[in-house]
Design a protein around this nucleic acid. Structure first.
Length: 258
DNA sequence: ATGACGGTGTGGCACCGA
């Protein structure tokens, strides 16, 4: 099976591209971030016609996440338990697979703007709460994937300019420590289970020919639990949609699981 | 140092993203 993610930066704008991509890449599960629309505006019918069930946690203007799945979705949970968050950033659901139930947690992680800002402090609190949530979920769901736009470049090789951007947002030691704390729960970065091209990124700034110059960051990730890890066959970033007219600034990431 | 691009809102620009 294939699990994928894509920060679409407005589903209202990107829906035609999502449908086109799914037709060419019929993944079993697609986790979407930055829907930027409310649940009532979510295109359930057209996605159902394309074969996908959906669990949605929308919000006006900002944020918003959804899980699309060929198989029905069960045990849908929104937000982080015990963390009062006005922003729609996390949705989780269980998918039945040939190897039993798979728990999928889809997150649009806080951006954080810059260190020493209120938004950065919110990002740190949010990451603490998410870590506790994932830990609790792993105890119940051994087969688990934590998927989404993490807004963290975990290592220097995940940035086009690690020295110039050192300790700036997405690159700070504190954010990277939070990423490692998620790995310490027993999760593995699916992308790094395989040899990958140098300068592999999942996001490029719209400005100053960022994509054409490959000035990007790898901030979109698929983390897999120990039970899942032996069955991960491949993980790759699909740059093709970024080359099309009116692209999202993010590219889809795909993991193949046996 | 700043803004650059793109999306949203109730707009004629401000804001946010990464």
């Amino acid at each position: 099976m294939k699990i994928a993610l894509w920060n679409v930066n407005s589903l209202a704008v990107r829906l035609p591209q999502v449908l086109e991509w799914l037709a060419a890449n019929p993944v079993d599960v697609l986790c979407l971030q930055e829907l930027k629309l409310t649940d009532d505006k979510f295109p359930l019918d057209v996605l159902r016609a394309a074969g996908y069930h959906a669990a949605v946690f929308g919000q006006k203007t900002y944020n918003g996440v959804a899980i699309l799945s060929l198989a029905p979705l069960a045990e849908v949970e929104r937000n982080i338990t015990g963390f009062d968050d006005p922003q729609s950033r996390v949705i989780a659901a269980t998918v039945e697979t040939a190897h039993g139930p798979l728990r999928v947690i889809n997150g649009y992680f806080v951006n954080g703007q810059a260190p020493d800002t209120d938004k950065f402090a919110y990002k740190m609190r949010w990451l603490d709460a998410l870590n506790a949530q994932v830990r609790a979920q792993l105890a119940v769901h051994p087969q688990l994937a934590l998927v989404g736009d993490f807004n963290v470049a975990p290592e220097d090789r995940d940035s086009f300019d690690p020295d110039g951007l050192r300790e700036t947002i997405h690159h700070t030691s504190e954010e990277r420590q939070h990423f490692r704390a998620l790995l310490d729960l027993g999760l593995a970065d699916a992308f790094r289970l395989f040899e990958q091209p140098e300068k592999s990124f999942s996001w490029w700034d719209y400005r100053q020919l960022g994509f054409q110059k490959n000035r990007g960051l790898r901030i979109d990730h698929i983390l897999v639990s120990e039970a899942l890890r032996p069955r991960v066959r491949a993980c790759y970033i699909d740059r093709a949609p970024r080359k099309k007219p009116q692209p999202s600034d993010h590219a889809p990431v795909v993991a193949e699981i046996g």
